[in-house]
Simulated assay, not measured.
Amino acid sequence: MDIHQFLALPHQFRWGGVSGDDCMTFPASWALRCIGIDPAEDLRGTYRTRDEAHAIVESYGGELPFMDRHLAKIGARRVQHPETGDIGLIKAMTGEAAADQIETQIGAIRFGPLWACIHPAGIRATPAEFIAAWRLPA
């Protein structure tokens, strides 16, 4: 499956990564489609709210160590120059209303010069600064 086919699938935002994805399970679902291994397998269905998701991420020491640990166990390697299909931790603005928006770190998939991520309104591809990027094993 290529990135275009993956992004064209019907995606729903769901905390916990069951019957949909959140901002961290979305790139894990991409890894599952690409290499048949789900780096979020141990987490899916263990939380249902934003607060529960944040508590899990914080238990790993934050977003970067969380993603590093889960992606390393499937053989993904860190890269400095992300390409289409690579998984990244990006800086993004989140929040429904403009007044509620805050900068946060979320998981995304490189899509040309953009980063594709899931949002309650659906999939978005946007330019973003990446903090770290990983390439899936072939």
Rank of each mutant, 00 (worst) to 15 (best):
G61W: 00
L7Q: 10
I123Q: 09
V79G: 10
Q101Y: 01
E83P: 11
F111G: 05
G122V: 13
R78D: 03
E52A: 13
G20Y: 01
H70L: 13
R110I: 01
I102W: 02
L114T: 11
I3C: 13
L32Q: 13
V18N: 01
I102S: 05
H119Q: 15
R77D: 06
A99V: 02
T46C: 03
M1T: 14
I87N: 03
M24C: 06
P120K: 12
T104Q: 09
V57D: 00
A133Q: 08
F111E: 07
A97I: 13
D51N: 09
H4K: 15
F6C: 14
S19E: 13
T49I: 03
Q105P: 00
V57T: 04
F26I: 00
F66A: 05
Y47E: 01
G107P: 05
R14D: 10
E103K: 02
P65D: 01
M24L: 07
T126E: 15
A128V: 00
L71F: 08
G75Y: 05
F66G: 03
L32W: 09
A97L: 12
S29K: 14
R77H: 10
I118S: 11
D22A: 00
A55Y: 05
I3H: 15
R44Y: 01
I102M: 08
F111K: 04
G36H: 06
P127D: 14
Q5N: 15
H70N: 09
C117V: 13
H119K: 15
Y47K: 00
E129N: 14
G88F: 10
Q101G: 02
F66S: 04
E129I: 04
G75T: 01
H11P: 08
A121H: 14
A28L: 00
P127V: 12
G36W: 06
I90C: 00
G88D: 06
A138N: 15
E63L: 03
E103V: 04
L64C: 04
D42N: 06
G95H: 06
T49M: 02
D51K: 06
I109Y: 11
Q105E: 00
D86E: 12
F13R: 11
L136E: 09
C23N: 02
R69I: 02
L7W: 14
T25L: 12
E58T: 03
I109C: 04
P113H: 10
C34A: 14
G36R: 04
E129R: 11
M93S: 12
D42R: 03
V18F: 05
Y47T: 00
I35D: 06
H81D: 11
G36D: 11
Y60K: 07
D100M: 06
P82W: 05
I35W: 09
Q12R: 15
L89I: 06
F13Y: 12
F130L: 13
R48S: 13
E41T: 02
E129G: 11
P120W: 10
D68Q: 07
D86G: 08
E96T: 12
Q12Y: 15
D100Q: 09
T46M: 03
